[in-house]
Measured scan of single mutants.
Amino acid sequence: EPEARKIVEKLINNGLSPEDVKRWAEKNNNPEVKKAAEEYQKR
């Protein structure tokens, strides 16, 4: 999901860690963003 990846990169560029992004995604019920954050961590 390229859109989710863009969101993850934007949040990380704004100073969030991938863990923060995953928590944000869970709080906002956004499994695509959570998955993208996990993939981002593996890179």
Rank of each mutant, 00 (worst) to 15 (best):
A4T: 06
N30K: 14
P18R: 02
K34Q: 10
E9C: 12
G15F: 03
P18T: 09
K27M: 14
N28G: 03
N13E: 14
A36I: 14
Q41S: 07
D20L: 05
K42E: 12
L16P: 00
V33I: 10
A37T: 04
K10P: 02
K10L: 14
V8P: 00
K22S: 06
A4L: 06
E19V: 06
N13F: 09
E9Q: 11
S17T: 14
G15M: 05
K34E: 07
E26F: 00
V8G: 00
R43P: 08
N13V: 07
Q41C: 11
Q41F: 10
E9P: 00
E26T: 02
L16H: 06
L11R: 01
K35L: 10
A37C: 07
Y40A: 07
Q41N: 07
V8S: 01
Y40F: 10
K10M: 14
N29Y: 06
R43C: 10
A36W: 11
R5V: 11
D20S: 05
E1I: 13
Y40L: 09
E39G: 04
L11V: 00
P31A: 11
V8L: 13
E38D: 10
I7T: 06
K6E: 11
N28D: 06
N30G: 02
E38A: 05
D20N: 04
E9S: 07
K10G: 10
L16S: 05
S17M: 04
A25N: 00
Q41D: 10
E38P: 01
L16G: 02
L11T: 01
P2E: 15
K6W: 08
K42N: 11
I12E: 02
K10D: 13
E9I: 13
P31S: 09
E1W: 14
I7D: 00
V21L: 07
G15D: 02
N29I: 04
K6M: 12
E9G: 04
K27I: 14
K10Q: 14
I12A: 01
N28W: 09
P31Q: 11
E39K: 04
I7P: 00
N30Y: 15
E38V: 06
I12S: 01
E32V: 08
N14I: 13
K27Y: 09
N14S: 15
K22H: 07
L11E: 02
E1K: 11
K42L: 07
E26P: 01
N13S: 13
N30F: 15
R43E: 15
N29S: 09
E26Y: 00
D20G: 06
I12G: 01
K27T: 11
V33C: 03
E9R: 10
A36L: 13
R5F: 08
N30P: 01
S17R: 05
G15P: 01
P31I: 12
E19W: 00
P18C: 11
K42A: 11
N14C: 14
K35Q: 10
W24Y: 03
E9D: 08
A36C: 07
S17Y: 02
S17G: 05
N28S: 10
K42W: 06
P2Y: 15
R43N: 14
D20K: 02
N14T: 11
K22M: 15
E3T: 12
W24R: 03
N28Q: 10
S17F: 03
P18K: 04
N30H: 13
D20T: 03
P31L: 11
R5N: 10
N30S: 10
N13H: 12
Q41V: 09
K10V: 11
K42G: 10
E39M: 04
D20P: 00
E38F: 03
G15L: 05
S17P: 01
E39L: 03
P31N: 08
K42H: 09
K42S: 10
N14A: 15
N14P: 00
D20R: 02
E3L: 08
N30M: 15
K22N: 06
S17V: 01
N29W: 03
E19A: 08
V21T: 02
W24T: 04
K34M: 14
I12K: 02
Q41M: 14
K6G: 06
A25E: 04
R23S: 08
N13D: 10
A37F: 06
K35N: 07
A37P: 00
A4F: 07
K22Y: 10
I7E: 02
R5I: 12
D20C: 09
K10W: 14
L11Y: 04
E1H: 12
K34C: 09
L16M: 15
E32Y: 06
P31E: 11
E19T: 06
N29F: 08
E3H: 11
K27N: 12
V21A: 04
Y40E: 05
E1T: 13
A4S: 07
W24F: 04
R5W: 12
E32S: 11
N14D: 14
N28K: 04
R43H: 12
E38G: 03
N30V: 11
A36P: 00
D20I: 04
A4K: 02
N29G: 13
K6H: 10
Q41Y: 09
N28R: 04
E19K: 05
P2V: 15
L16V: 07
K35M: 08
N29Q: 08
R43F: 13
G15C: 07
A25Q: 01
Y40M: 10
V8M: 10
N28Y: 11
I7L: 11
N28I: 11
K6A: 13
I7C: 11
K27A: 15
K42D: 12
N13A: 15
A36H: 05
E26V: 04
A25K: 00
A25V: 00
E1G: 12
E38L: 07
N28H: 13
V21E: 03
N30I: 12
A4I: 07
E32T: 09
V33D: 01
N29P: 01
W24E: 05
P31W: 10
N13G: 12
K42V: 09
D20F: 05
E19R: 05
R23C: 09
E3V: 09
D20V: 04
N14W: 09
R5P: 06
I12R: 02
E3G: 10
E1R: 12
E3R: 09
D20Y: 05
A4N: 03
K34G: 10
R5Y: 11
E32D: 10
I7A: 03
